[in-house]
Structures are given as structure tokens and as C-alpha cells.
Amino acid sequence: MVHRTNYRTTLYANFVLFEKSHNCNSDYIDYMKKNRNREIEQREVVIKLENINKTFSLKDKNTDTIREKVLGIFSKNKKRQLKALDNINLEVRKGEFLGIIGRNGSGKSTLLKVIIGAIRPDKGGIVTTNGRIMRMSLAMGFDPNLTARENVYLNATILGLTFKEITGKFDEIIDFAELHNFVDTQVKFFSRGMKSRLAFAVAVHAEADIFLMDEFFGGVGDAKFKEKSEQVFEESFIEGRTIIHVSHQFRTIRDHCNRVILMDKGSIIAMGRPNQVIPVYRKLLNLEKEVDLDMEEN
């Protein structure tokens, strides 16, 4: 008797699993993937940048102390104006996977900081965002002296979750990051890979609506974690999660992005599908040989 029921339940469970993985969802997912670009155009705008300019004034000498300020009256300190962002207009729709490429110092990171509100653009610029934003970059977002648990709670509560919600999701986050043995370890003892896994897990499970990834997967994360993150990227369009990915890893950009922006000297010089923009970047770098761009970084 016992045997039979067991047999039946497992059979049924297998059947349900089979149906879930092969029939019901996959058709829908395939359809959505095929029509991703058309679908996205009908969705709402979540990030809107209008007339964004940002000028940093750099001084050759440090003048942030009283002594330097007093002496500075007599000696003229050269001020250099550096235009980090030059008249940027951009609309990002819900569920988009936007790649930003460009040379070092072309204003990619500054743009992300403007979106998150850490840097205020010059007068006249308007930033409108709709959703909870989390910016991820290596070695940031965590306090090294706090434990993993405290950091997860801190980040999630600032993202807008209540304690109850975080406690409900905490195990999922740790599962995703595969840090079971290090929950109460201080983050300063973590490796780079562990930190980035944790940050990504928080962002995914605390349901941040907009991910800003600032060269986040620069050669860290083993194959298993990469597989997980690929899965997240693939589902993100269906779940309405917007991702902006600043990277030199062209494989990710080629595989996932529906739109790529090429930035140079603070302005957007090309925008389009990955296979349209990446050749322009190649031309910009003046690469004579046919170099694999991915190899360059690693």
C-alpha cells in the first residue's frame, strides 16, 4: 500500500516537473524571446535622462585644507574643467538589457552614478527613475567589518524591504550565493568571488527593479555561478527586471544585450544592436589585427 502511493506521487511529481520544464513555460518563454525587441518597445520607460551634463573641476593641487585655502588667495591655482558627461539623452524601458561599452575614462561609471543619484548632474539635467535601483561593482556595497548576515539585512532594508520580508528570503539569498558556512563571517575575510556572489544574490532576491552592473563580472565567479547568473539574465526580461551592464566582456554583451551604447569622451557616439555597435568600437580602438576582445581583458 505504502509502496504504491509513493510510486504514484513520485510519478505525478515527475510528470508535473516535466510539464513545467518542457511544455507550458518554454513555449511562452520562446515566444517572448523571439519578440523581445518588439515587446520592449511597448513597455514603460523606467529610466529617463534628459540633457545630462557633468563637469568636474579638477585642481592640480589639493585645496581642501584651511592652510591651502589661505595660501591659495595669493597663488593662483589652476582649475581644469573636465567634461565627464556631455549632453546625454537616454530612455531605458522595462526589461531591457542595456550594455554600455567604451574606453577607460569615457564616463560609463559616472553615468551609472548619475542614474543612482549619487552624483547630481549640472543644471538643466533631469533624471527620472522608476523602481528600486541597486548598483553593483566589485568591492563595494558592503561594509568589510560587518558579517554577511548584517550586510544582507542592511542592503535589503535600504532597498526598501521590511525585516519580515528579508527574514523570509534570507535562506534563498544564502543558497544562491552558496555561502552557507560563512553567514556570520565578516565580509573582509571574503574573496572577491564570494563578495560579488553575495551582492548579486541580494539584488536578485531583494527584487531590485534596476540592476546597474559596473564591470561586475570582471573575471570572477566560477562556472556554476556563471550558469546561475546567465539564468537570471535570461529571465530578467520576462520578470521585468532592467539591467544596465557596463563591461569589457563582450561575450555577455553579445549574448544578452538587446541594445548597446558606445560612449567616448562623455557622449554617446553609437547606439544599436550588439552586432552593429561592437564593430564601431573595434574601429575606435584602431585595432589592426582581428583581436578577440574578450581575451584582451583576461
Partner: peptide
Amino acid sequence: KYLIESIQF
């Protein structure tokens, strides 16, 4: 700063 730079609040 690490919080200001990574999350909006």
C-alpha cells in the same frame, strides 16, 4: 559612501 554609491535612499 559605499551605501550612497550603491543604493538609492
